[in-house]
Design a protein around this nucleic acid. Sequence first.
DNA 1: TGCCGATATTTTAGGTTTCAAATATCGAAG
DNA 2: CTTCGATATTTGAAACCTAAAATATCGGCA
Lengths: 173, 173
Amino acid sequence: MTLLAQNLLDAETKAHEHEDQHQSQLRLWLRLLSFSALVESQIRRRLREDFGTTLPRFDLMAQLERAHDGMTLNELSKRMMVTNGNVTGLVERLVAEGLVERRPAPRDRRAQFVRLTPLGRGVFQHMAGAHARWLSVLLRGLEEKEIEIMMALLGKAKLFARGALARGELEIP
Amino acid sequence: MTLLAQNLLDAETKAHEHEDQHQSQLRLWLRLLSFSALVESQIRRRLREDFGTTLPRFDLMAQLERAHDGMTLNELSKRMMVTNGNVTGLVERLVAEGLVERRPAPRDRRAQFVRLTPLGRGVFQHMAGAHARWLSVLLRGLEEKEIEIMMALLGKAKLFARGALARGELEIP
DNA sequence: TGCCGATATTTTAGGTTTCAAATATCGAAG
DNA sequence: CTTCGATATTTGAAACCTAAAATATCGGCA
């Protein structure tokens, strides 16, 4: 038997050994997705009905609210975990609505800073309060202790996932 | 003091009483979002690089794979938790790729059944295997026991959220 | 100074998503 | 049988999102 064939067989065996684990991981992922889809759809609906805005716009404003002096588009896209081109369009619309303003970065003529206008800040604070209340309803099922457990597990999972990605474990397996 | 003003004050007091809880619920939600965004972006990338497809297409095929006789577009949109119009377009593209086929529903001329073609079934099984392996890497941080805990907590949270929604607790608060 | 790889942003093309309006059909009540 | 509210789907407009190419600038190095 060739070494390659041996390795393939090993892999096959290993795969079967861990198939149950695969199953439960898949089920967890699907459950997580369906829960977050449920919550997200309600938040989107409420943002639209109550404030005439969208979740991506709210997210962008939430990022800006913490940085009083604003931040660069690039940093914004990293924090929001979306592409640069996406942020360009979002900022465009928020500027058109008067909620956000752009200004050139002081030392770097490639970059520009973007920040909330006073209007934007006021509007956001309203929305953030409502947002927190909606979440308090939608997550009512979990007690404080359970929230802590879940926070810890998600934190651990994320840490390991980042590690695996950094080691390239997801590539060409 | 008017009744309205009294109610508003009560609401205000209540809000402050529960503010810590609000905080932890918000933090949990953000952590859940950031973890699922991380996993999702990797799965999207892998589906594109390895199979030249997208997550929504994969999701649609995954729904169809369980129903051998196919299902109606409406049922599909409910299970995927997306709008009807969305499904129309997705099915259109999958039909064009030869992975899915439509046929009129037997008794209802408004509806049509949609199902995987044999090609679609074969392609999906390949993708599903890879998908499970990616998840096994991305969720490696959680032990079997922890997965069970998280499954239970998510299930509970979802149940309560559905209940709250059914009782209209998210409306005009 | 002038070149060059890296970084910040925009643009382009295609796909995804939503809502609301339009179309077609169903099923039941009169 | 006819009408009418409900259901299944499609269409249209606008937004969101991505990847990849294009543009502009930076910063270091010869």
